[in-house]
């Protein structure tokens, strides 16, 4: 009986969601995609130009790539502090959120907000409130991948 009621409730909420969707304007998919593509692409091309500059001045490919990432992160965090990044992201969308700049922004934004709650638990703690999950998932899964490769190596397959 209870189960039947639950199913009924689910049906009603589904029907209502469908009904409410009729009144909800859709995001501008096409426009957003074009913007994300152009801005994201331009950002990556600019990063490549920067990387080539570093390589030309005698750095190895790996060092140059690290420098570029560092510069992008610093720039994004500076823009966040100045209060410009959210305005840019409103228009560029994934074009600046998906590159490493979005990750950098997601660290500073909550930390900035919780400054009044102290520099240790406020700023220090909130630095990871949004970026934490990204680091946790990325690092954990990379260790897992490494372990799998290690096992394959020991078994003589890899």
């Amino acid at each position: 009986m209870d189960k039947k009621k639950q199913i009924e409730k689910k049906d009603i909420s589904k029907a209502y969601s469908k009904y409410a969707d009729r009144f909800t304007p859709k995001p501008k998919y096409f426009k957003n995609i074009i913007k994300a593509f152009v801005i994201g692409g331009a950002l990556c091309a600019a990063a490549m130009w920067l990387e080539n500059k570093f390589i030309a001045s005698g750095n190895s490919q790996e060092d140059a790539s690290a420098y570029v990432v560092i510069i992008l992160i610093m720039a994004a965090q500076l823009l966040t502090g100045l209060g410009v990044f959210d305005t840019i992201a409103k228009h560029a969308g994934a074009g600046v959120i998906v590159p490493i700049t979005g990750f950098a922004n997601s660290m500073v934004a909550p930390a900035l907000e919780y400054k009044k709650e102290g520099v240790v638990l406020g700023v220090g703690g909130k630095l990871f409130s949004l970026a934490g999950p990204v680091l946790v998932c990325g690092i954990t899964s990379s260790i897992l991948v490494g372990l799998i490769y290690l096992m394959l190596d020991k078994l003589g397959i890899g």
Binding site: G93, L112, E113
Partner: peptide
């Protein structure tokens, strides 16, 4: 906003709803 949604300076796009 900071209690219920995202920090002010966080770059995100608000949906039309």
């Amino acid at each position: 906003e900071r209690q219920f949604r995202m920090p002010l300076e966080h770059g995100n796009q608000r949906p039309p709803s």
